[in-house]
């Protein structure tokens, strides 16, 4: 177990793994996305209240979920990098940020477009919406902080502290609809007991969430590789990599 851990933490090994897994992750993500989009747009019946507008759920919920889980992955990677002084972990954290930020933008934008016809407003300073906006600023702040350092090692450490502190916002976003009165409705899937979505509407959603995770992993592979190359300036193993791919 530990041997594998240390092996994975070595940049050449991680670089090769990322290159090998990326096409598999990407293609399975694309196939699942097509299937679940078909399930969500065609097979699922319209909702009893929201009619066809509820179909926005199939892109809104996965991006919102990913906007949080990517941040957790980023913070954990940053924490590992900080504690064990593993450069690769910092590279993973740095690679997560832009992807997570885009998921957050997508969640906010699709949520806004969904809110207009259903709630009657594009934006409200509701606890869920506000905390998700803060989530976006955390990502942007992390990236801005990193880019303000010329020295990678200092950027890694400062960024890691911000990433770890910011993880406090994740449970706030998640439980905002439970803790406070809000315009946004409560959780449908991630609660105790049966999900409150009928099964022909539920399976495309769960499948789409899986597809988004695979997509994230695929994009992460590319970003981690780029990040490794940016850091390992003089390593001898780069010659073979550069010659190969």
């Amino acid at each position: 177990m530990w041997l594998w851990f240390y092996k994975l933490a070595s940049p050449p090994y991680a670089y090769a793994i990322a290159a090998r897994w990326r096409p598999w992750l990407l293609w399975s993500a694309l196939i699942l996305m097509v299937i679940s989009a078909y399930g969500g747009l065609v097979l699922a019946p319209p909702d009893y209240q929201q009619k066809d507008a509820f179909r926005i759920m199939y892109v809104h919920v996965p991006s919102a979920t990913l906007s949080l889980s990517v941040y957790v992955i980023m913070a954990v990677a940053a924490g590992i990098g900080l504690i064990w002084r593993i450069k690769l972990a910092h590279a993973v954290a740095a690679a997560c940020a832009p992807i997570g930020a885009w998921f957050t933008v997508l969640a906010l934008a699709t949520g806004s477009i969904w809110g207009r016809p259903m709630w009657g407003t594009w934006w409200e300073w509701d606890p869920r919406l506000t905390s998700e906006l803060i989530q976006l600023f955390l990502y942007l702040g992390y990236m801005a902080l990193r880019s303000s350092f010329d020295d990678t090692q200092r950027a890694d450490r400062a960024g890691a502290i911000l990433a770890i502190v910011g993880v406090v916002n994740v449970p706030i976003v998640k439980y905002s609809v439970v803790w406070w009165n809000s315009l946004h409705q409560g959780p449908s899937i991630s609660k105790l007991g049966a999900p409150s979505i009928a099964s022909p509407m539920l399976w495309p959603l769960l499948l789409m969430m899986l597809a988004f995770m695979l997509y994230f992993a695929a994009v992460l592979c590319d970003r981690v590789r780029a990040e490794i190359l940016r850091r390992e300036r003089n390593a001898s193993w780069l010659a073979s990599v550069a010659a190969g791919t």
Binding site: P45, P46, D47, Y48, Q49, Q50, F54, M57, M118, W119, G120, T121, E124, L183, Q185, G186, P187, S188, S196, I197, A198, P200, M201, L202
Partner: peptide, 18 residues
């Protein structure tokens, strides 16, 4: 000055709701 609709967290086809 403004009225917004709140919907619940339940999603189901109309016949199931009936």
């Amino acid at each position: 000055e403004e009225v917004l609709a709140k919907h619940d967290e339940n999603y189901m086809p109309p016949d199931v709701a009936d």
